[in-house]
Design a protein around this nucleic acid. Structure first.
Lengths: 221, 221
DNA sequence: CAGTGGTCTAGACCACCAG
DNA sequence: TGGTGGTCTAGACCACTGA
């Protein structure tokens, strides 16, 4: 019944924005005005407005005021799932199988297949920088998915992702047990620790068998 | 040179987490300890820790303490671009062309093509709920992309997205001027205002000609 | 110039968790 | 029961904006 006051203030403003009462570009009541409306301290309304600004719903300008953000693009929160957890959630048995392991220079290259109920649903080609992750050289990746190991053992600071659609070539089609030319979802990721690339991976999912789903709210930038 | 103190606190902790000094599950210094470390008030460290919690880097538990979050999945902030702006950014001329308009029941159905330098790069099939957006019935969408119009005129609260890879069928291939079976990136979106669906759209991009890219940091959930 | 948001302080009460 | 985070107050100084 009694959510924190700053949450109620935030929710009320979100409602006003979503309903169109406060259209994009409209001025939001000043902190002073909101203090009076809700009979509360400035820190409280500041927390509410700060959260809206973080969410991208409003834009705050020192000396000028707070305004409803223009809707330019939609920003979307995509959860790149842990494959094992995702398969388990579907009630299927997950297994990873290594198909190729090459060490060349400072790079460890790994090809592998992700299986659900012994049926391949994704393949991946990965390189790991041994200069950044020397421990990886000693790990047995024949049945352990390198992504899971890296996630648990290697801190990383940021990453980049590219999502595209490709037609499976002959080798990929064979590994995935589909016909050549089948549309697949390709996810390319590279993870960095500071200026060093930790790992780079390309995962190929059978197009119709794997979706990325998300829900999200409005967000500019 | 002197960022706000709460940002410095946050940055220092992020660094410690990214470097592995504070591994997942590790306990973060209490607010009291951080107050002493930085000789500041509790609200200041609270703001820093709150931001880290919002970002999903740490988990805070009343009465227990703050802990580095386990890395479960990567969450990814994906910007669904405004097509016109994206094309303009590439230095190409954007144009939208309507190919079909049908009004049936309370639904307005629109098919259209997005062109870059007069070359099709995406097609879309959209329905708009006229019960929620009656104004749309009077809009001339022959050259105006409905997405842009909706973005500017209709408030919405949330949406869902599904990304998948599909092979273009005969009609889609013709509209996109590619061969039948070409791998395409499909983005299905539905937008809601409260409990009412505002619009539903399926956009098909030529797989190799369109990528979704993003950069992101670690984030659980 | 007056008004705005950005930051920060030094308190306070509470709900919750662990030992 | 003592320590934790969640919330809130009533001030304050500053940088910036707009008229």
């Amino acid at each position: 019944m009694s959510a924190p006051l700053h949450q109620r203030i935030r929710a009320n403003l979100e409602e006003a924005i979503a309903s169109g009462d406060l259209p994009p570009g409209a001025r939001i009541p000043t902190e002073q005005a909101l203090m009076a409306d809700y009979s509360c301290a400035r820190m409280t309304v500041s927390k509410a407005l700060g959260a809206l600004a973080d969410a991208g719903l409003i834009e705050r300008r020192k000396g000028a005021g707070s305004f409803v953000a223009q809707r330019r693009t939609h920003a979307l929160m995509l959860a790149i799932p842990d494959l094992a957890a995702e398969i388990a959630r579907r009630g299927e048995a997950y297994r990873y199988r290594l198909t190729r392991r090459v060490r060349r220079g400072g790079q460890l290259s790994l090809d592998g297949v992700h299986l659900a109920n012994e049926r391949p649903f994704a393949i991946e080609r990965r390189t790991i920088a041994l200069g950044v992750v020397p421990d990886a050289a000693a790990v047995d990746f024949t049945a352990l998915a390198p992504g899971a190991w890296l996630l648990a053992h290697v801190p990383w600071s940021e990453a980049g992702v590219r999502i595209s659609a490709v037609a499976a070539n002959a080798a990929e089609a064979m590994a995935l047990a589909v016909e050549r030319g089948t549309a697949c979802l390709a996810i390319d990721r590279s993870s960095w620790r500071g200026a060093d690339r930790v790992t780079e991976v390309r995962q190929l999912f059978i197009g119709t068998g794997w979706d990325l789903v998300a829900r999200f709210g409005p967000q500019p930038r």
